[in-house]
Design a protein around this nucleic acid. Structure first.
Length: 285
RNA sequence: GCACCGGUGGCGAAGCGGCUAACGCGCUGGUCUGCAAAACCAGUAUUCGCGGGUUCAAUUCCCGCCCGGUGCU
C-alpha cells in the first residue's frame, strides 16, 4: 500500500482465495478504504462456486499488468500463492484445462483398482512424468494423466513455459523470524474467528453449498463448527496450526524463487518499508 | 498409611522376554507447470522414571525407591 502510494503503483493481488467474492474475514483482504486509495486487481473476480485456476490467474494478471503500465503506473504484485506467481512470471505450458468427467472416472478407477493404479497408468502413458511424480500424489497424477489423455500428448513433452515478457521484475521477499511469525499468525487467526468467520462461512455455505473454496484455511474449520463436529476453540487451534504449516510451505517455495531480494522482518515495520522502497527506487526510478 | 493403575521422543500413544522401539501430531527440510490456503515426500528416541536382580537376552519378569492418578480406612 505505502509503496504503491509512493511510486504511483497499483496492486495486483496474488492470492488464490482472495479472488473469491464473499470470502472476506478469512483472507484478510484490503479494506474498501484501502482499495479506494490504491487500485487493487485480482480480488473478488469469481464466486466461490466458480473454479478459478492457475491458468485463469496467469491470463488475468497479465492483462492487469499491461493495463497498469499502459496507464503509466507501476504494477506491484503482492501475495503468497507461489504457483500463481510462477504462472504469472514464468507461465504455464499450453495444456488442456480441467476435465471434470475424466477426473471423476480416474478417481473411480483408483477406488476400484487400488492406490497404485493411477501411477501405473501414467507409467504407461508417460514414463518420464511417472518417474517425477510420487505414486501417492493423486492430485498431480490426475493432472498428468489428464494432460496426456485430453491433450493427446505426454505431459513430459509439453513442458515449455511461456514467460511474461515486456516487464523488468524486482522480487522482494519478507523473512521474519519463524517464532514471531508463528505468534502473529496465531493472533491473526484468532482475530478472524472473533470477527465472525464462522458466520461468514455459514452464509457462504447456504448460498453455494460445500464448494472447494470453502476448504481453505479457517473456512474448512468453520465448516466443521457448523456441522457440530468441532468446538470453536478447537477450530481456532486447528486453523492456527494450518496457517503455521502453510507459512512454512510458502517459505520452502519462495526460497527456490530466483533473484529474490530478502528483507528480514515483517512488512509493517518502518525499516522494512524503507528497505523495500530503496530497492524499488533503485530499480525503477 | 494401605491397595490398585500408570510413568516409552516436544506431545499423544503401541509394544510387555529376542527383528534396526509401531503409529498419529508437532518440528525441520523438500517437491510442486490449471481446484495450490491443495496434494505429496523425507528426516526427526543408540533408548523405554531411577537403582539393583533374574536370564544367553529385558522397555517387557522380580525387588526397592521416586513421581502422577484413582480408591480405601
Amino acid at each position: 500500500m505505502a509503496l504503491a502510494e509512493r511510486f504511483k503503483g497499483e496492486i495486483v493481488s496474488c492470492d488464490s482465495v482472495a479472488v473469491y467474492r464473499g470470502m472476506e474475514l478469512g483472507t484478510a483482504k484490503p479494506s474498501a478504504a484501502e482499495r479506494a486509495r490504491v487500485p487493487h486487481h485480482l480480488i473478488d473476480v469469481a464466486d466461490p462456486d466458480e473454479p478459478f485456476t492457475a491458468g485463469d490467474y496467469s491470463r488475468a494478471s497479465r492483462v492487469a499488468l499491461k493495463e497498469i503500465s499502459a496507464r503509466g503506473c507501476l504494477p506491484i504484485v503482492t501475495g503468497g500463492t507461489g504457483l500463481y506467481l510462477r504462472a504469472l512470471t514464468e507461465g504455464l505450458f499450453n495444456g488442456p484445462e480441467r476435465q471434470e468427467a475424466l477426473r471423476e472416472r480416474l478417481r473411480q478407477s483408483k477406488a476400484r483398482h487400488g492406490a497404485s493404479w493411477l501411477h501405473r497408468l501414467l507409467a504407461r502413458l508417460d514414463a518420464p512424468s511417472a518417474g517425477r511424480i510420487h505414486a501417492n500424489d493423486t492430485a498431480k497424477l490426475i493432472r498428468a494423466i489428464e494432460v496426456c489423455v485430453a491433450g493427446r500428448r505426454p505431459l513430459s513433452q509439453v513442458l515449455a513455459r511461456h514467460p511474461l515478457t515486456g516487464f523488468r521484475l524486482l522480487r522482494v521477499g519478507l523473512n521474519p523470524a519463524r517464532k514471531e511469525l508463528y505468534e502473529r499468525l496465531n493472533e491473526r487467526c484468532a482475530a478472524m474467528f472473533a470477527a465472525g468467520l464462522v458466520e461468514e462461512t455459514r452464509v457462504l455455505l447456504k448460498r453455494f453449498g460445500h464448494v472447494k473454496a470453502l476448504d481453505s484455511l479457517g473456512y474448512r474449520q468453520s465448516l466443521a463448527v457448523q456441522a457440530g463436529t468441532l468446538s470453536v476453540e478447537a477450530a481456532i487451534k486447528e486453523a492456527q496450526q494450518g496457517h503455521r504449516n502453510y507459512a512454512k510451505r510458502q517459505m520452502t517455495w519462495f526460497r527456490r524463487e530466483p533473484d529474490v531480494r530478502w528483507i528480514e522482518g515483517f512488512g509493517d515495520k518502518p525499516e522494512t518499508l524503507r528497505a523495500a522502497a530503496a530497492l524499488v527506487g533503485k530499480a525503477f526510478e
